Computed example of a mutant assay.
Amino acid sequence: MINRFILNEVSYFGPGARKELPTVVKSRGFKKALVVTDKGLMKFGVAKMVLDVLDEANIPYEVYDDVKPNPTVTNVTNGVEACKKAEADFIVAIGGGSSMDTAKGIGIVCTNPEFADVVSLEGVADTKNKCLPIIALPTTAGTAAETTINYVIIDEKRQQKMVCVDPNDIPAVAIIDAELMYSLPKGLTAATGMDAMTHAIEGLITKAAWEMSDMFEIKAIEMIHKYLPVAVNDPTNPEGRNGMAVAQYIAGMAFSNVGLGVDHGMAHPMSALHDVPHGVACAILLPTVMRFNMPVSIKKYVEIAKAVGVYEAGMTDEQAAEAACNEIENLSKLVGIPQHLTELGIKEEDIPALAEQAITDVCTPGNPRPVTKEDILNLYKTIL
């Protein structure tokens, strides 16, 4: 088997790393940026922390902040027009996965105009050109969109999330500055952090996992388990915030290259049909999906148990695996993740429509255990 690993050209890490932005821009000869962000980050001054750096360096830019929490085809289409109007030659993406996913869609269409119909990008699109250069500055520690070759956009007409996979969309530069995350609310910190944990666990056990990806995912699991409670309960703690910022990036490096599984397959329709935040959807499913996959993932669950500190000498593999599942469930409860679908407004009669989309989601085939629609129905019902 031949394995492929794609990463950013360069990444910067550490509190205050956004100050490297002018050096990056000038070294690459960029002239004008389209800043892609959302209105919340503009309102609460998080985006301003980056815009001030651009202003001080006299780097021209225009702002496109019409990004929804679950970005849509319309967000991308309008962003392409904004980019053309601005005559921008690069994009600065500030935000969580929503802003970065929107930026990827904009960047791809700008350099591959034959895909102007954004819906045509679903799945693995045969784009020919790298997207408009993106410098990505995450404000959440979860999606790792700054280092992945994936982006997710909602097709409003079908009410369905499109997972787009394209090596040409990876940001050229990632700047992981934990200071941009200090004001992230407790609930969002928890949700995005558990999204990162889901990435790490699914990336560890997915069908395409191999030694290199395993190395990254185990370390990410260890770090997220250690730093997420700190980041949630002490939001300005530099160690907790920077630990999570690095951990989610590490998880992203690997899962971007090996894929995910049915947890993400089931989470996507929850966002598309019920507007559930992606991180919450992934987190609420994670312990149940882990137990579903346990029979085929025992050995790797033992490694998870060791990474989160619940492995004890003399344990059987089955005991260690169950301890790993229990500890991930405990972490989810500790940081305040809802435990039942009804808490999110999802009813039993909604489950068939969710399952219909989940079984065809691009992430589902990567699951290590074969999964049927009936399995998915039962998994949803388990946490109803």
Rank of each mutant, 00 (worst) to 15 (best):
I201F: 02
N58C: 13
L377M: 15
K68G: 06
V280D: 13
K373H: 12
A208E: 10
K39W: 00
A196Y: 00
K39L: 12
F115C: 08
G203L: 08
K299I: 00
L344S: 02
A320Q: 00
A174Q: 05
Q357I: 03
F30D: 00
V289W: 05
A267I: 05
P229C: 10
D234E: 07
A267W: 00
P69Q: 06
Y380S: 08
V362S: 13
L377E: 15
N326Y: 00
R291T: 10
N129L: 04
V165N: 14
T382I: 07
Q319K: 15
Y227A: 05
P368D: 04
F13W: 08
L228I: 14
V80Y: 10
I284T: 11
S183P: 06
D361A: 10
V76E: 01
G240Y: 12
L384E: 09
V246G: 02
V119Q: 11
P277K: 15
P185D: 06
V25N: 02
F5G: 11
V296S: 03
Y12S: 11
K19L: 14
G261C: 02
A353V: 10
N326M: 00
A178H: 13
E9L: 12
G366P: 08
L34G: 03
Y12R: 13
M270P: 15
N58G: 06
V10K: 15
V118A: 04
L334V: 09
L285C: 11
Y151F: 13
G336V: 07
M194W: 00
L180Y: 02
V232C: 11
E322G: 06
E327D: 13
P138C: 00
K186A: 04
I153P: 02
P269F: 05
K219V: 10
D350Y: 08
C83M: 10
M162Q: 14
L41T: 08
I170Y: 01
V276F: 04
P60V: 11
V109K: 14
D66K: 09
N75C: 02
M181E: 05
A93L: 11
V280F: 08
V230E: 15
V163Y: 03
A178S: 15
A88F: 10
N3R: 15
E348N: 09
G96Q: 13
V362I: 15
T72R: 05
A144V: 07
A136T: 02
P133F: 05
V152F: 01
T192S: 14
L7E: 10
T77V: 08
R28T: 00
S297A: 14
V232A: 03
T143E: 06
V276H: 10
D361M: 08
Y182T: 13
P370W: 12
S256Q: 01
K84I: 15
C363L: 12
G16L: 09
T77F: 09
T236C: 05
D169H: 07
F44G: 03
I346T: 08
I106N: 05
A191L: 03
I59G: 01
D65Y: 08
D101Y: 06
D101C: 09
F90P: 04
Q248M: 14
S256E: 01
